[in-house]
Design a protein around this nucleic acid. Structure first.
Length: 326
RNA sequence: GCCGCGGUAGCUCAGUGGUAGAGCACUGGUCUGAAAAACCAGGUGUCGUUGGUUCGAUCCCAACCCGCGGCA
C-alpha cells in the first residue's frame, strides 16, 4: 500500500498526550505530511471538544487543510449530521495517499481501530443496513437482550459464543451480516486482524503518560477550552444541528449540552468530562500496548519536551529504516 | 465536664456471636463497517485502640482515643 513512500511513522497515544504537536514537529524536520487517524476530528465544526489542530483550508480546486504550514489530512471534512465508520475511513485514507506530495508521511491519531485497519485490512463484508438494524432494535425492545442473543445462536453459534449477550451492538452487527450474506458472520472473519507482522511496515510510536499527570493535563485542557467549547455547541444548535446528531455524541459533548441546558454546574461538567476522558485514555492505552512500538513514557511534566521527543523519535526512526534496508 | 449519635474498602455506607459486603472510585482485559462506540472481569480491609465475657468478638460489656450534635 505504501510502495511509493518511505516507511511511515505512526504516532499513537491517549487523548491529550501531545501526539499532534510531536507529529507536526517531526513533519517539519523530515519533510512529511500528516494523516490523521481520529474518528472525531473528521467532523467539521467540532474543534474545541475534539482538540482538532487549528488550521485553514487552501486551494479551492484541490482543497488541503494546512496546520502550521504542514498538510494535515482527514480532518474537518465530514458534516456532523453524518455517521462515519472504519470502512469509510479506509476508503478516504487510500484516496488521501494519492494526494500526498512528499515521500514521507506520518499517521497520527488515537483511534486504534482505524489505525489497525490500515495495516490489517477488514475482511470483505456488507456494510451496515439501516432497515435490518431498526428491525433488530425493535425485536430487542420487545423481547430483550437474551432473546436477541438466542437469535444469533441460531444463525451463528460460533459468534454467539464469542459475543456477550449484553454487547448488543456486536450482537446486532453479527446478525445483520449473517442475514445479508446468508452465511454465519464468524465464517467471514479471517481472525488475523491483529497480525503483528503487518506492523513492521511502519514505525510505531506510543506516547504514554502516567495516569496522574494525564489527568492533570486533561483537567487543565478542559478548563482552557471550556468557553470556546460552549460557544461551539451553541453555534451548532443555532445552525440547526440536532443535539443527538452523530457528531454531537462525541465524548464530552452530551455533558456540555447538559451544562448548557442548566442541568449541571460548570464544575460538575468539568469533573465528568475529565472522568470520561480518563476512562477513554485507559481503553486507548490498552489498545496501543498490544503493538510493538517505540514507547515514550512521560512520568514528569518536564519530560514532555516536544523538541527532544521529536529528535529522539527521528533518530530511532532512521535507525529502523537503515536496518530494514539491509 | 455531662448526655446522645457515630468510627467497617480510597469515598458514601450496609451487615453479622463463626474473621465481612453494596454503590461509586480503582485496576486488568475484549475488539472486523457506531470504535471518543459497545462490552467483560477483578480485588481493595489490623471492622478506632486496649482489655473483658465467650470454644470463638468486627458484632456483647468496659475504659480510652477521635468526629459530630445537644446541655452546661
Amino acid at each position: 500500500m505504501f510502495s511509493s513512500f518511505d516507511k511511515p511513522i505512526v504516532i499513537t497515544g491517549a487523548n491529550a498526550s501531545g501526539k499532534t504537536a510531536i507529529a507536526l514537529r517531526i513533519a517539519k524536520e523530515i519533510g512529511a505530511e500528516i494523516i490523521s487517524a481520529d474518528s472525531r476530528q473528521i467532523y467539521k465544526h467540532l474543534s474545541a471538544g475534539t482538540s482538532k489542530p487549528a488550521g485553514r483550508w487552501i486551494n479551492k480546486e484541490n482543497p488541503v487543510y494546512i496546520v502550521d504550514s504542514i498538510p494535515y489530512h482527514l480532518v474537518d471534512f465530514i458534516d456532523p449530521i453524518e455517521t462515519y465508520n472504519v470502512a469509510k475511513y479506509i476508503y478516504d485514507f487510500k484516496n488521501c495517499l494519492l494526494k500526498i506530495k512528499t515521500r514521507k508521511f506520518i499517521i497520527c491519531g488515537g483511534t486504534g481501530f482505524y489505525i489497525n485497519s490500515i495495516f490489517n485490512p477488514l475482511d470483505p463484508m456488507p456494510e451496515s443496513n439501516k432497515h435490518i438494524r431498526n428491525q433488530l432494535r425493535e425485536y430487542l425492545d420487545k423481547y430483550g437482550k437474551e432473546k436477541l442473543h438466542e437469535k444469533l445462536k441460531e444463525l451463528d453459534p460460533v459468534s454467539a459464543k464469542k459475543i456477550h449477550p449484553n454487547n448488543v451492538h456486536r450482537v446486532i452487527r453479527a446478525i445483520e451480516v449473517s442475514i445479508l450474506t446468508s452465511k454465519p458472520y464468524s465464517s467471514l472473519i479471517s481472525n488475523n486482524i491483529f497480525n503483528p507482522k503487518s506492523y513492521s511496515n511502519a514505525f510505531f510510536v506510543f506516547i504514554k503518560w502516567s495516569r496522574q499527570l494525564l489527568s492533570k493535563r486533561i483537567k487543565q485542557r478542559t478548563k482552557e477550552v471550556f468557553n470556546h467549547w460552549e460557544r461551539e455547541i451553541k453555534d451548532m444548535i443555532t445552525n440547526g444541528y440536532p443535539i443527538d446528531c452523530p457528531g454531537l455524541k462525541s465524548l464530552g459533548y452530551p455533558i456540555m449540552i447538559d451544562y448548557i441546558e442548566n442541568k449541571i454546574s460548570r464544575d460538575k461538567a468539568i469533573e465528568l468530562i475529565v472522568k470520561e476522558s480518563m476512562d477513554y485514555a485507559k481503553r486507548q492505552n490498552t489498545w496501543f500496548s498490544r503493538y510493538e512500538s517505540t514507547k515514550i513514557e512521560i512520568n514528569e511534566e518536564k519530560e514532555f519536551d516536544i523538541d527532544s521527543i521529536a529528535n529522539n523519535i527521528i533518530s530511532r526512526y532512521e535507525i529502523s529504516c537503515n536496518n530494514s534496508n539491509k
